[in-house]
Simulated scan of single mutants.
Amino acid sequence: MRVNTLKRAAVAFALALPGAAVATVVAAPPAHADGCYTWPRTLTQGRSGADVRELQIRVAGWAGYGDIVHIDGRYGPETAAAVKRFQAAYGLRVDGIAGPQTYAKIYALQDNDCTPKHFSYAELDNGCGTGGWSGGPLSTSATRANALRAMWKLEALRHSLGDKPLYVTSGFRSVACNRKVGGTAGSQHLYGNAADLISRSRTLCEVARSARDQGFSGIFGPGYPDHGDHVHVDSRRENKQDGLANTTDWSASDCGVN
Rank of each mutant, 00 (worst) to 15 (best):
R93W: 14
R41E: 14
A33C: 14
L55R: 00
C114Q: 06
V83I: 03
G127A: 11
I68S: 07
K117C: 12
A28M: 04
G35A: 09
G46D: 06
A60F: 00
L109D: 14
Q45K: 10
I106Q: 10
D72K: 06
V59R: 01
R74I: 12
A81M: 05
S139A: 11
I97C: 08
T44C: 08
L109N: 10
S120P: 08
H118A: 13
R85M: 05
Q101F: 06
V59C: 04
G127M: 03
K117V: 12
Y75R: 03
C114D: 14
Q56G: 04
G66R: 05
Q87D: 06
G64Q: 00
A80G: 10
D51Y: 02
L92F: 09
G99S: 15
G96C: 06
V94L: 08
G135E: 01
K105H: 11
P29T: 06
T79A: 07
K117D: 14
S120F: 12
Y65P: 08
I97P: 04
D72L: 07
G129W: 00
A33E: 11
L138Y: 05
K117Q: 13
T102R: 03
I71F: 00
G99R: 13
A88V: 01
I57M: 07
D72P: 03
V94R: 08
G49R: 02
G73L: 03
K84V: 01
D34L: 11
R85D: 07
V59Y: 02
D34K: 11
D67H: 13
C36I: 03
R53E: 13
K84M: 13
Y75E: 07
R41V: 11
G35V: 03
